[in-house]
Design a protein around this nucleic acid. Structure first.
Lengths: 363, 363
DNA sequence: GGAAGCTGGGATAGCGCTTTCCCGTTTCGG
DNA sequence: CCGAAACGGGAAAGCGCTATCCCAGCTTCC
């Protein structure tokens, strides 16, 4: 009796995955070549393979309708051709525009995109990153404004750093933390330019309706605006915060009107276009005609901005390009990564912010 | 000299993935248990594990910051916890709303979502499905209207069928082909209801600006509209096609105006809200005031619809719910799948389509 | 009191693919 | 004309994990 260790012996091979996909072994067998050769052909590796064999493999693969198993390939290679994108919500033109760019770049890099949403919940953001790490992706892109003083930020950072140390690339689409990379809209500069532009149009006292001041995007924009207004003697008269969306814009504007605090302002600057649209409705509901009685500005230039009446003055950021660039950066050359790219925005003056009597428009 | 087969021998183990992630083996070693036990604990399998060992494994995993390698797990299990979503564009409120629902459902099912975009290119749609199949996902969701007479449809169908036969689930988010499953907006019924509603408001002759008549979504909507208008003696006076987006709406409306063909119409029905918004601009540019001189309707109820002036009458579909439901269906019980669920829409009457003089609004 | 069940744990085949090693042939340069 | 280098091909060792099989130690139950 042959010696045999414990716990072993013949066992029936596990059933092939239901009705099974053809494997590389099948292809090799059909082509009459070794597994190695088949693999080399299908991955056009450095190693050369004779024309004859190459041809046979290709034909066999086609005949069997062979599709490389990405999981297996990923395991053998040690990393998956995957880029993970983490955003607060995909049903938001801001992020979906970025996502479009990300997916398109990933496509040209031959990389698959997996997407996770955090619903603006930083606990979930953290668990998502944990799950994502299990995919051993090449890169993780993190969207959504960082939140000042968030208790989860430390853990998130640790998680991303560990990821980076094990060879992955982490890129923020907003304020970077801990020396990781970032590609993001130049909020402060854009806001400053907007401030300058409206000041030149003759506006001096801004009412700001925006999101929570703990959102770094919010503080960047508000601060930029202030700096843009100042040189011409303008300033921010009042700041009202609410949720960073349409209804938040409506509510906070409503509060400004009801409390009379909007009185001193000649321009209402919203933290983003959604808030601006909500604000315009609130203004009308309060008997104030946007664009005539008070100017209104937004941020981001979502498609709607040009379709509302009056058309909305805003700052346009090339969001898809930002996404594309972030993905390019993440999928690019090897090595650690800590670039922080700010992509400039462009002020788009529209009817919601007409030149005021007496404004020269000159410098 | 020991006998040894060809092509073998000691070789240095491949370098661990740079700086390496901890593996289950590491965890087991640290916990002083076998690999099997560690796996059982971490996957809470049926097999019971003693409290003592369980505890040790959990601790070791935490200390090492262990993260299951999903690729490896997928390979061992034979299928990946992945759902693939294929849409024409993610930067489109229609699809991003659906995607939101899909991702949310997938999340509760513990499944990762990978996304691919086809840019409305059916050749690319086909190659995408091929790539996706390599991921061995549990399900594939295909968005985007089918196109009548498309030469790639057959190949796509074959691909999806093969996928279904190997155990995957394929679900369309639009017109299903070849007996596969679908969850989709009830375009025809929604359009019919819209037709009925505007007819009751006193409109009789519709000008339709819409996408290519080869898009099945387009024909479904146009046909439904016709059926809704007919009972009250209404009908479609003219149909003008262009791209299925905002600029297409603008251009086709412009053509109707310039050729005078818009003359006979009292309501302009756009194929979707984007086209409607473009159409309204074109109307104004042509000196026709939407909502006053001619009624306007859209389709889908994108967020913008309520923000334009006049507010847009449209048909609302619960897109996120459609996405969620499709994902639920795809990730649900096993077995083949060929349900075709039509999700009803709701007509939203707004100012762009005011009751006309003489309209009773009664049935 | 011995057979038959549990129970909890360990050893180890694969999963499908990449990539080293190793080897028989050619092709060359000297 | 011979040894070296180049070339093309095959065998098989993992990658990290799951799940099957086997076993030792206890209970149970006639």
């Amino acid at each position: 009796m042959p010696l045999q260790g414990p716990g072993h012996g013949k066992r029936k091979p596990r059933a092939r995955a239901s009705s099974g996909n053809p494997t590389l072994t099948d292809v090799a067998a059909r082509a009459g070549v070794s597994l190695a050769t088949a693999s080399r052909v299908l991955n056009d590796s450095d190693r050369k393979v004779g024309a004859e064999h190459r041809e046979r493999v290709l034909r066999a693969a086609a005949e069997l309708d062979y599709r490389t198993d990405l999981s297996a390939q990923a395991m053998a290679r040690g990393s998956a051709p995957v880029l993970a994108l983490l955003v607060s919500s995909i049903d938001d033109p801001y992020f979906s525009a970025i996502a479009e760019g990300v997916v398109s770049s990933a496509h040209t890099h031959g990389v698959i995109v997996t997407i996770a949403i955090t619903a603006r919940d930083s606990a979930r953001e953290l668990t998502s990153v944990r799950t994502i790490r299990g995919q051993r992706p090449r890169a993780i892109l993190v969207g959504g404004s960082r939140i000042a003083g968030n208790p989860h930020t430390g853990a998130l950072l640790a998680e991303l750093r560990a990821f980076a140390e094990s060879g992955g690339r982490a890129v923020f689409l907003s304020q970077p933390v801990g020396g990781l990379g970032a590609v993001r809209p130049a909020n402060a500069a854009g806001a400053r330019d907007l401030g300058t532009a409206i000041a030149r149009h003759g506006y001096r006292r801004a009412a700001v309706v925006t999101g929570s001041e703990r959102l770094e995007t919010v503080t960047e924009r508000t601060e930029g605006l202030r700096r843009g207004l100042a040189p011409l003697g303008g300033g921010i008269a009042v700041v009202e915060s609410d949720t960073f969306d349409r209804s938040g814009g409506y509510r906070s504007t409503r509060r400004l009107i009801e409390s009379g605090r909007i009185g001193g302002a000649d321009v209402l600057c919203a933290g983003n276009d959604f808030m601006a649209v909500g604000a315009m409705t609130a203004l009308r509901d309060g008997g104030i005609e946007p664009g005539r009685d008070i100017a209104v500005t937004g941020f981001n230039d979502i498609e709607t901005a040009a379709d509302v009446t009056p058309q909305l003055t805003t700052v346009r950021f090339p969001l898809a390009a930002i996404g594309r660039r972030a993905a390019d950066l993440a999928l690019g050359a090897d090595g650690p990564l800590s670039e922080d790219v700010s992509v400039p925005g462009e002020v788009i003056m529209r009817a919601s912010c007409p030149p005021r009597d007496g404004a020269t428009g000159v410098r």
